[in-house]
């Protein structure tokens, strides 16, 4: 039976193990990918994913439908925990290259989510490729690198205001390119 994201949220809110299991099957792969991209360490990434899903399980769903999609919500939780861990590692090295090496066994996953992610992924890759390189680098340093605004400004040798502007412009361009994929309809102000 295919559960909707709303079904999953209701199930988690009811503190049902099946709810957290469905959430993991749908977004665990993406969560793991995010953690690994940020931490470049498989063990640390697994820890962060497990801690994130357990936190959701223990607290119950704090997801609010009006504040973005379920996918964005869980990705944000994982991303924030991974960044916290990255910042807490005094001996960390920043790796901005893709992870390579041994293969990892596939886990049980939600086939509906896998198809949706693949379709979404292609469009997002295309939209990102259309951004000027400096805008793409700015949002990647912010989202995956754990850099602060001032650190990004230093790394990219631009004023702080330029960093703010690049983030806003990049996201505005992405939302225009991905309007059909967004769960919250875009409204211009």
């Amino acid at each position: 039976m295919h559960l909707s994201d709303d079904d999953i949220v209701r199930s988690i809110s009811a503190h049902s193990p099946e709810g957290i299991e469905a959430l993991y099957d749908r977004y665990g792969g993406l969560a793991h990918t995010v953690a690994l991209r940020i931490l470049s360490d498989r063990g640390a990434a697994e820890d962060v994913v497990q801690e994130s899903f357990l936190a959701v399980w223990r607290r119950g769903s704090t997801f609010q439908a009006g504040r973005g999609s379920l996918r964005s919500w869980i990705c944000t939780i994982v991303r924030n925990r991974a960044i916290d861990r990255l910042r807490g590692d005094r001996h960390r090295t920043r790796l901005d290259t893709p992870i390579e090496g041994e293969s990892i066994e596939p886990a049980t996953s939600d086939p509906w989510a896998a198809v949706a992610l693949e379709l979404s992924g292609e469009e997002v890759r295309k939209a990102l490729a259309e951004l000027p390189i400096e805008q793409r680098q700015t949002i990647e340093l912010a989202y995956y690198g754990g850099y602060s605004q001032s650190e990004i400004a230093t790394v990219m040798e631009v004023p702080l205001g330029t960093v703010k502007g690049r983030v806003r412009i990049a996201l505005d361009k992405l939302r225009a390119s991905l309007a059909d994929r967004m769960e919250t309809p875009w409204q211009t102000q």
Partner: peptide, 20 residues
């Protein structure tokens, strides 16, 4: 919410690495 949605789509561009 819209900005969160857009940012939340960024990870889908990554090559998916299934967890063990």
């Amino acid at each position: 919410a819209q900005y969160v949605d857009v940012a939340g789509m960024l990870p889908t561009a990554l090559e998916l690495v299934p967890p063990p």
